[in-house]
Design a protein around this nucleic acid. Sequence first.
DNA 1: ACAGGTCCCTACC
DNA 2: GGTAGGGACCTGT
Length: 161
Amino acid sequence: MSFKAILSVFPLKFYLIWDQEGNLLKLNLAWDFNLVSQVIFYDNEKAQKFCKAFWEALWSYWNFKTPFINVKHRLIGTELEKKVLLGLREIKIGKVKRYKDLAEEVGISKGYRWIGKILAKNPLPLVYPCHRVIGSKNLGGYSQGFLIKQFLLYRELEIIR
DNA sequence: ACAGGTCCCTACC
DNA sequence: GGTAGGGACCTGT
């Protein structure tokens, strides 16, 4: 049993899926240039409560009060995968790390390709801020779309100045 | 076996 | 000195 909703916060929209205990299971991003921030879809009445909680957490991140979207969620994966994703939360706003740095931190200095693979299937972008991981020579990829990664990073760097 | 959001060295220009 | 190509390196399925 799972529930869905879509929120729009210029210039992005957020697709949410959560379970009956109110744990966010999946988050997807897309562009949405509607200027009005709003909940544009939800599939039952109880969703309002969840959306409110998510909205507040999102707002905290959006204003850089928290370095990631801090909502109740459930993360599946192996211990090592979780360790990698949890490590992302230590990266401060306006900072980045390389795939290689993360690999070294979890003790597999040459497993940087595998790090990319984990981030690629991160079900909760921004909850685990994988957009702050870049390649040694370029920005690297982003499962939610390369331009969205660029936008998120640009926005975070902008606030530092 | 194989894939994957990489890295780095090499060989060219 | 910039860049295109290829081999090596890890874990989870």
